[in-house]
Simulated scan of single mutants.
Amino acid sequence: MPKHTHLHRRKGSNSYYFRAKVPVDLQEHYRKQEITYSLRTSDHKKALELVRGAAVKLDQEFAEIRRQRDAKPIQTLSKMEMDRLVLMLEHSVLSADDELRMAGSYAPNGWLKDHAVASPETAVPPLPRRSLPASPSCPVASAVGPWSFSSRCLSGAQPN
């Protein structure tokens, strides 16, 4: 029978277990030296399939944790990066707005029915919509949709 490094079986148990050592540099994050859990099967072939997938997932998780831990903060953003972030925010706000409107949570004057505003200073009115240019040369228009706060196409934006 083929074996796998992370496939184990406990004495007196029919179930197979996934067992992997946590790398030394990640032990502080996991607060343990080993990860062990049941694969919930006693079939060896099925256990081999499950342990292979689990090993790949764990390796990806280790890599992601290291990437986040070692990431350097961004000091500056290019104009293109800023425009991209603005578009993502606008899209998110508009999607949430559409969901609220479709759910009927907006009053006819545009303010939320279910949320009381403590003072006019804390109130944020709905943002106006201006359409993006709907031209074939503007990939942003098709990606974001027909509505955005931006009034220009960012397809020609150049990094600083």
Rank of each mutant, 00 (worst) to 15 (best):
V124I: 14
L127G: 06
L127R: 12
A123S: 09
P125I: 00
A141Y: 09
Y106N: 15
P126Q: 09
D98L: 04
D98A: 02
K113I: 04
E99N: 07
P120M: 11
S137C: 00
S135Q: 12
D114M: 02
P139H: 04
L132K: 08
P136T: 10
V117M: 11
R101P: 00
C138I: 04
A116D: 14
A141W: 08
S105V: 00
N109V: 04
P128S: 13
A118P: 06
P126T: 06
V117R: 09
K113M: 05
P139R: 06
A141D: 03
L112G: 09
D98H: 01
P126A: 05
S105P: 00
P120G: 12
A107G: 10
M102E: 15
R129S: 11
A103I: 00
S131G: 09
S137I: 00
S142Q: 14
W111A: 03
P139G: 01
A141L: 04
E99S: 08
V124C: 13
W111M: 02
A118R: 11
L112M: 10
P125Y: 01
E121F: 15
M102R: 14
V117K: 08
P128Q: 14
S119M: 07
G104R: 02
E121P: 14
P128A: 13
C138R: 05
P136E: 12
V140P: 06
P126H: 05
P139E: 03
V117Q: 07
E121C: 15
R101N: 10
A116M: 12
V117I: 14
K113P: 00
L100D: 06
Y106W: 15
P133L: 03
R130A: 01
L127C: 08
G104K: 02
D98R: 05
P125Q: 03
D98P: 00
E99D: 13
L132M: 12
S119A: 11
V124R: 15
T122V: 14
P125D: 02
P139A: 05
E121T: 15
T122W: 13
H115G: 00
S142T: 12
K113F: 00
S119T: 12
P139D: 05
P139L: 01
S131F: 03
G110P: 05
K113Y: 01
Y106C: 14
N109W: 06
S135A: 12
A123R: 10
P136H: 10
S105W: 01
N109I: 03
V124N: 12
P108T: 03
L100V: 01
S131H: 09
C138Q: 04
L112H: 08
P133C: 05
V140W: 13
S142W: 04
C138W: 07
S119F: 11
S137L: 01
A134C: 10
G104L: 02
V124T: 14
P108K: 09
S119L: 10
C138G: 07
L127M: 12
D114F: 02
S135N: 10
A116Y: 11
P126S: 07
P139K: 04
G110K: 07
S119I: 07
